[in-house]
Design a protein around this nucleic acid. Structure first.
Lengths: 147, 147
DNA sequence: CTTCAATTCTTGAATATTCAATATTTTCAA
DNA sequence: TTGAAAATATTGAATATTCAAGAATTGAAG
């Protein structure tokens, strides 16, 4: 009797790979739009989180925008130079630094938001309304179940 | 009449963000497993693609494993040093280099595959069978619709 | 109170990635 | 057939990221 061929699944069937591939593609598209304003995706995320007007600590921010602490510190350094955001020492816990968005940052953030909305709309068109919201739902619950 | 507050959707609702977050988390888990063999995820992908025994050009490989050409070149340099893969000039088109997996590479790849399968099983358990295959289906069709 | 461990952020060195330029080979039109 | 354009891979310099260590502050136990 011949062994059944232990068919090893190709890499394209792994969830990790599909996620990486989809992420890469969607990110590439978004990057392309935001490059009109010369801003990397991560900076848009930072501006968007800060645009609630509240102060956010570096740790909080790093989690929210999916960056390591040192990487975030250096990116924030650049954004401070560009006067998009500014640092304030937290008066209640002086180990912490609170980040705020500047007026210039708010103006830029609005432009970026509309570029991003363009993309979302483009996805809705080509991919469909229902699959999009279904995909979002599934991704949220995957993330939940991973904690 | 007060304007309705133009509620700007938080970043956590954007598809691009959800994909990045899910990808980061799943990739982190996979990295953790593969680190048992001291191998980065990208090298596992390379080995897996090459394990069909056929020669693959650098361009083909770069597409398949989601890496830029120069990044791939340098990663392959390391893997050649580790005798996991080797280069052969394509006899039919001498601009190309064909990559092959070595015996050592095959042995390592098998170990890595089972570590990756562990992870997939862990996801199936905590996230569920049906949501997983549904998510895969949606990701594939998103990727399709983006080309 | 004092001291020691934990938390938060930043820094500098090591490592990795990217961009632009280069070298080689092939393709194809004139 | 020749010469210019395209395709393929690599290199080196510029840039970005990461890891490990450091500085400052807080918390909490003795």
């Amino acid at each position: 009797m011949a062994k059944p061929p232990k068919q090893n699944s190709p890499i394209t069937e792994h969830l990790a790979y599909l996620l990486a591939q989809a992420n890469r593609e969607i990110n590439r598209q978004l990057e392309l739009r935001l490059s009109k304003e010369g801003v990397p995706v991560e900076q848009w995320r930072i501006l968007k989180v800060l645009s609630d007007g509240n102060g956010h600590s570096m740790g909080e921010l790093a989690d929210a925008v999916l960056l390591n602490h040192p990487t975030l510190t250096k990116m924030i350094d650049r954004m401070v130079s560009d006067t998009l955001v500014y640092r304030v020492q937290d008066p209640n816990d002086r180990r912490k630094v609170l980040m705020f968005i500047s007026d210039r940052g708010k103006v830029l953030c609005k432009k970026l938001n509309s570029l991003a909305v363009d993309q979302e709309e483009h996805i809705l068109e080509s991919y469909g309304d229902k699959p999009t919201s279904e995909l979002k739902r599934l991704l949220e619950s995957l993330i939940d179940s991973s904690n």
